[in-house]
Nucleic acid binder design. Sequence first.
DNA 1: TCTGGGGTCCTAGGACCC
DNA 2: TCTGGGGTCCTAGGACCC
Length: 430
Amino acid sequence: MYGIADLDNCYVSCERVFRPDLNGKPVVVLSNNDGCVVARSNEAKTMGIKEGIPYFQLAELFPGQQIAVFSSNYELYGELTGRVVSIISQEAPAYFRYSIDECFMYLPDSAEPLQNWGEHLHKRVKREVGLPLSIGLAPTKTLAKIASKLAKKYDVYKHCCIIDNEYKRERALQWCPIEDVWGIGRRYAAKLQSFGCNTALDFAKHHKDWVRETFNNINILRTWQELNGEDVVPNEQLAKKQSICTSRSFNGMISDIDSLKTHVSNYAARCAEKLRRQETVASTVGVFLHTNAFRDDLPQYWNFREQQLITPSNSTTTIVQAALSVLESIYRPGYSYKKAGVIVLDIRPDSPIQQDLFDISTQQITKMRLLDQVVDRINRIHGSETIVLSAQQYIQKGSRGKADVFANAIKHDFKSKNPTTRWSDIIKLK
DNA sequence: TCTGGGGTCCTAGGACCC
DNA sequence: TCTGGGGTCCTAGGACCC
């Protein structure tokens, strides 16, 4: 039996942990740069606030309404959800983290009543972390996802819904709109609806050959099989990422290459750090650059290029150098850029690297490795960007203060504090 | 003024090999 | 007149997820 444990309205619920006064009220959390709505409380959903609407439209669309707004605070969400995963690791015999707010679990058939187990897990997470967790259990992951939606929607399930017989399966599929099925996105949903499939059940009742011929795609065939009770969606194979990307939209627009270099250096440094954290190296470094696609009044330019490293690496210095050289090759003056990003690819385990005959000496590699280790340690203890390469340093107009990395590049006007990770934000009781 | 960020997988088609 | 067959690898584009 598979289980999925899913936090309700994750970001909003995290914000409410330290703002219990907002329970029962409409709350939204915005994307980076306070761009658009990425999380909504149930009250905000009921009001009709759609996911993804730009923040600046909120006031126009819902004039005079009291809506609590937060910038995203990933430090907080990461820390709180980490606590939830730690509880799941104690309660579930096997699990894997699927996203920031979801864990798949595998539960062997046993005499233990699973309903009680699920309700216990929910209560424990609520008591110890303060976050609302919904649990769905079923013979396949796709059905478990549907069960968790039911668990969220109807109080009668007490936050844990189990699909464990044919009758419940049919009822659940009949209840579930086709576009809510895991693996059916907007495109497939529209196509299925054009064939009269409005619920998961309509789709599941079609013949397998019809699905094969109509879509000619293995993923949607698997979804169909899973809805019919066949466990075929592969379990997450690799915990390690095969590509790592760091990108940001700018607060405003940037035209000069020097500012772009600073940003790209920082994104590259983040990628290197992510590589080291998962003990891997990459052999390709790519950079992309965008103008603002929403501004049809301005000339548009988009480009992406990549470069092979002679020796696979996770060194900040090496990755930053490569990224900057790619940036220079794709940069075109005369445009206003809105977004840039660095992607590292061809990722493999960091151990016996094949040393290239023509690359820098082993001695130098060892030196850079030690430097990265020290920098990582200091940054971990004293906060994420205490030490940076000089290329990463933002030069503020008129001042040369401490590198204020990202902070002056991203807008977050409504950010909450970090009482669980920063001494300066710790909550004081009278 | 203002429109997110980070991933995975599949398929078709072209280049190239023997 | 008539121009094979089988395979791999790479890339771009499109779909999906949270």
